[in-house]
Design a protein around this nucleic acid. Sequence first.
DNA 1: ATGACGTATGTTATGTTATAACAATTGCTG
DNA 2: CAGCAATTGTTATAACATAACATACGTCAT
Lengths: 175, 175
Amino acid sequence: MSRKVSPASVAPALLGAFPEPGHDHAHCVDVALKQAESICQERGARLTDVRRRVLELVWRNHRPVGAYEILEHLGNSRKRAQPPTVYRALEFLLAQGLIHRIERLNAYIGCTAPERDHDGQFLICRDCGATAELLDRRIDTAIHAGASAAGFTVEHPTVELEGLCAKCRSHDHHG
Amino acid sequence: MSRKVSPASVAPALLGAFPEPGHDHAHCVDVALKQAESICQERGARLTDVRRRVLELVWRNHRPVGAYEILEHLGNSRKRAQPPTVYRALEFLLAQGLIHRIERLNAYIGCTAPERDHDGQFLICRDCGATAELLDRRIDTAIHAGASAAGFTVEHPTVELEGLCAKCRSHDHHG
DNA sequence: ATGACGTATGTTATGTTATAACAATTGCTG
DNA sequence: CAGCAATTGTTATAACATAACATACGTCAT
């Protein structure tokens, strides 16, 4: 069992793509959790039980998930967790680059390329809610160029693109 | 007095630029209000008293302003306005393209090019809070190209770039 | 002018998202 | 196992936003 996971072998084939309707999502979750373990171990960061469960819940599907939605599913039969528990876990996962926050939606989504330090670009379908992460260097380049023309240095770009995914666009046309 | 205002004559020299520290801000507000009047008249939209006052408050400075901050300044000596009053005015101003919402900050900022229908790109200084609007076609192009490569049609891009403006960057270096 | 209608605003209550502050627990290290 | 730092639990509240219904206002046909 190699501890160091090569990006090529584990990266889901989702970068810039929307998942197929019937794909093996358990596999997506599995990969994400394994990557998280590996990354945290490398860094000496502690992927505790709460944090792992929150990460798992963020990965329940390929849509951004709200903190309170996570909270609902985090409950331990008898006692419900409180907001700070979830927000602290989210804060940790954000800091480790394991998830991203979607500002438009006040929601969180699993990162598909956690090995790289980056701010992604997000394609958010207004119809089905599916959200894909893009890592487009041309967009980055254009942004940095445009900003520096105004004397501005970009540190944390937020790029969230609402629109229609291919599937929903074809539905709209046909139905 | 011409009713139709040519963009060239009124557009503030701020597109993609941060305002000078000592600029005549009363002029910025004045221009914004006049443009708003003109645009609403053309469209048969009613720029009522509440709406004009909210627009004026959004333009108090070149930083995004929160709804509750507006609320505080909207009070009429005796009775304070309620949240829905402000939110409804903001909704109207957004619909008319007279202001933009900054998602990262849950805040609103005056649009510097209200005659054009557009989603701007925003440069937000993390140090001084000053925020400038960019209308960079290269960024738009890169975004649409990147998205369509994933089969995605962008309808409403959100581009909010946090970083350092020229002034604050030089302060950082010197001090 | 007046009544009917649509738009705008006032008012009350509540929903949703997020954090402050402090206590208790856990895990690591000497 | 004592001491310390990191994590989680718990209580309360802050910050942002909207639902629902009442009132006022503008305008247009009669």
